[in-house]
C-alpha cells in the first residue's frame, strides 16, 4: 500500500488527438462565426415595421380564416392531395426496377452504373429547381408538380431500396440460388420478402414528404396548395395563410400517425 496514486486526472480528448489541431479548429470556428455573423445586415426600421405584420400573422394563425378563400384553399388542397398520391404511386413503380438495378449484389455492372447515375441526378437536383424547369416546359399547374414529385421520389426510394437490397441476408439468397432458381425467381423468393416491409414503410414516408413538398412547389407555379399560400401571403392575408398552414400541419400529423399504424400492421 505504499504506491502513491495521482490525485489529478484529465479526460483524454475523444476525437482529435493533436492539441495544436484542436486549438486551430476552435480558433477557426470562432473566426468563422465572427465573420459569418458580421455578414448579417439588419434593416431595423424595416424590422420594426415588420413586427406589426408579425403580430398580425400570429393573430391570423391563432384565429385562422377558412371561409373567405375557401374556394382557392379547397382547390389547392385537392390538387396537392391528388398530385401527392399519383406521384408517389408512379414514382414507387418506376423506382422499384431502378432500385433493383442499383443494387450491386443482384445487377450486372453496366445496369448498376446507369441506375446509380439516374438516382444521383434525381437526388442532387432540388425539387424547387426541377419544378421551375418542369413549369417552363409543361406549363403552370399540377401536371408539372406531379412530374417534379415523381422525379424526386425515384431518387429517394431508389437509393434506399438499393441499399436495403445490398444489406439483405445473403444466406437466404444463396439458398434460393442453390435450388436452381432463375433471376426473377431469386428476386421474388429471396429479395422481395426481405425488403417488402421496408419498401412499404418507405413509400408511406415518401407520401408524407411528397405532400409537404407539394405545398412548396406551388410557389413556383407547379400547382397545389402552395400557390394559394403564396397568393394569400403576397396579399398580406395572414388569417388565410394561417388557415392553410394549419391545414398542412394537421394533414402531416394525421398521415404520420396513420402511417405509423400501417407500418406496424404490415410487419
Amino acid at each position: 500500500m505504499s504506491t502513491a496514486y495521482p490525485t489529478t486526472w484529465r479526460k483524454p480528448p475523444q476525437m482529435i488527438q493533436s492539441r495544436g489541431l484542436r486549438v486551430a479548429l476552435a480558433v477557426g470556428a470562432l473566426i468563422y462565426l465572427v465573420l459569418a455573423i458580421g455578414t448579417i445586415e439588419v434593416n431595423w426600421t424595416r424590422v420594426v415595421a415588420g413586427m406589426e405584420r408579425g403580430q398580425r400573422f400570429v393573430a391570423g394563425f391563432l384565429q385562422p380564416d377558412f371561409t373567405t378563400r375557401w374556394r382557392d384553399i379547397s382547390n389547392g388542397l385537392m390538387e396537392s392531395l391528388t398530385m401527392t398520391f399519383t406521384s408517389t404511386v408512379v414514382g414507387v413503380l418506376i423506382s422499384v426496377p431502378i432500385g433493383v438495378g442499383a443494387a450491386r449484389n443482384v445487377a450486372p455492372v453496366w445496369v448498376y452504373y446507369i441506375c446509380r447515375s439516374i438516382i444521383a441526378t434525381s437526388r442532387a437536383l432540388q425539387e424547387i429547381i426541377v419544378a421551375i424547369f418542369f413549369v417552363a416546359l409543361f406549363g403552370f399547374g399540377a401536371f408539372a408538380g406531379f412530374l417534379t414529385l415523381t422525379f424526386a421520389t425515384i431518387g429517394f426510394i431508389g437509393k434506399l431500396l438499393a441499399e436495403d437490397i445490398e444489406d439483405i441476408d445473403e444466406a437466404q439468397a444463396e439458398a434460393i440460388r442453390a435450388t436452381g432458381a432463375s433471376w426473377l425467381q431469386l428476386i421474388n423468393y429471396a429479395i422481395q420478402p426481405q425488403v417488402m416491409p421496408r419498401l412499404i414503410g418507405l413509400s408511406l414516408y415518401r407520401l408524407d414528404i411528397n405532400f409537404r413538398e407539394s405545398a412548396v412547389i406551388g410557389i413556383v407555379g407547379a400547382g397545389g396548395i402552395g400557390a394559394a399560400l403564396n397568393t394569400s401571403l403576397s396579399r398580406y392575408e395572414y388569417s388565410s395563410a394561417g388557415a392553410i398552414l394549419l391545414i398542412i400541419i394537421a394533414i402531416v400529423m394525421a398521415s404520420e400517425y396513420s402511417s405509423g399504424y400501417l407500418r406496424k400492421w404490415v410487419k
Binding site: 408579425g54 402552395g226 399560400l229 401571403l233 403576397s234
Partner: peptide, 23 residues
Amino acid sequence: VATRSINSLIWALLLVSILGPGI
C-alpha cells in the same frame, strides 16, 4: 411537428414578408 411540417421555403416566404428580404 409544426416546425417540421412546414418547409423552409414557406418559412422564408413568411419571414421575408415580416422582416423584409435579407439573409
